[in-house]
Nucleic acid binder design. Structure first.
Lengths: 216, 216
DNA sequence: CGTTGTGAAATGATTCACAGCT
DNA sequence: AGCTGTGAATCATTTCACAACG
């Protein structure tokens, strides 16, 4: 489809939020939703919702709004999640285990096809139905499963090596749960989920809110 | 300190990134770091680093750069993490367990002071040194521990009720691991960590990268 | 009516470029 | 020399406001 180079990045990132709200509405049986309703649910203005969606096509009906199920399906196509995304997980520690038990991924086509760990104690055990394989099998596993996304949930010190292995294995994207900045070729997408950063930013927000309280 | 209303939000969010890199440099024994080095490590331009930091004060020395330990301490003050932040965790499932074992929080002054769950099977057990308490004790616990941050790691259906309880308990900030948008008064800060959203955005990025490959 | 889609205006953020300091 | 801090210029995003539509 058309050139998405002109789509503002913030707009592209909000698509997941629209998707989530639409799933809820569709499940609740709403036939349509207006940009105002969608915006209200997400803390955005109606104009922003319309402009965001308009970057990708003409999905709405004047006087009516957007048909939930329709828009849902269109967004899935646009985001590339109208198909299965085979994933591999590296690291079967606490975070890895939590991810394996997190059923919500599968709803969206993300399926953890294999789990790898370096610890001899963990390799061979089964966690939430997944047998843990030795890290040495990673490249072969990625290739044979045609996995495109790698989830890194290892201790920080192992992260660079794991990232390098995933790159060698021709992975396309990495979801990084370690606090390291992974140094990978530009063609490989990385998204970081850092709990400490999230907590710090929250503390910052709370501090600022407290400072504003004091002012008034 | 001065009015921070004019600090761009993106700049404020990058402070955590600067902090993380500075910790590394300080640990490695670097005395100073230039805006260019800091930017390179984080994928930003030197000008942006300087402008970001200049929003909060004059921390650098022309011809030299920034003294790592100094800047580290200043950033901690600015972000409000130069003190302890007592936290409570609600939900002792897989994610909650992972968080309890995540030692990195404590390094930064975030300490989980109490854990609550609604399941009779889990209440009373001890996880990573924390005894799990019944959810009914939440309000009392928050008050007696003077907890300011609540971490929500419960199933999605329980999230709204838990958020309401935390609000009633006079919490200041919520770190939300559920895929729900929590509806709380404006004075209460919420930061969401949604694994599915992260995966979706990653898949989107990968799709776009693939589309660009095809073009060329 | 109410709602979308969209140019135009306003706001916000980043980059540039350089004076001034060490 | 090397580097910071910053006004000015550029670039990006959001909001406004309204014509066109069902």
């Amino acid at each position: 489809m058309s050139s998405r180079s002109r789509v503002p990045r913030p707009a592209a990132r909000r698509l997941s939020l629209y998707l989530r709200e639409l799933k809820l509405r569709a499940r609740d049986g709403s036939a349509t939703i207006s940009s105002r309703q969608l915006g209200e649910a997400l803390g955005l203005t109606d104009a922003q919702v319309r402009k965001d969606l308009a970057h990708f096509g003409h999905f709405g009906q004047p006087g009516v709004g957007y048909r939930c199920v329709d828009l849902l399906e269109r967004l899935r196509m646009i985001m590339g999640i109208d198909r299965a995304w085979p994933c591999v997980l590296v690291g079967a520690g606490n975070i890895g285990r939590a991810l394996l038990s997190y059923r919500r991924f599968e709803e969206d086509g993300f399926e953890i096809k294999a789990v790898f760990d370096r610890s001899r104690d963990i390799v061979g055990t089964t966690i939430a139905g997944h047998k843990v394989r030795p890290i040495e099998d990673l490249a072969r596993g990625v290739a044979s499963l045609k996995a495109e996304i790698g989830i890194v949930a290892v201790p920080a010190d192992a992260a660079p090596a794991v990232a390098a292995m995933l790159v060698d294995a021709r992975i396309r994207g990495i979801l990084n749960f370690t606090p390291c900045r992974l140094d990978v070729p530009a063609a490989i997408c990385v998204r970081n989920v850092d709990f400490s950063v999230a907590l710090e930013q929250l503390a910052f927000d709370v501090s600022l809110a407290a400072a504003q309280d004091d002012e008034s």
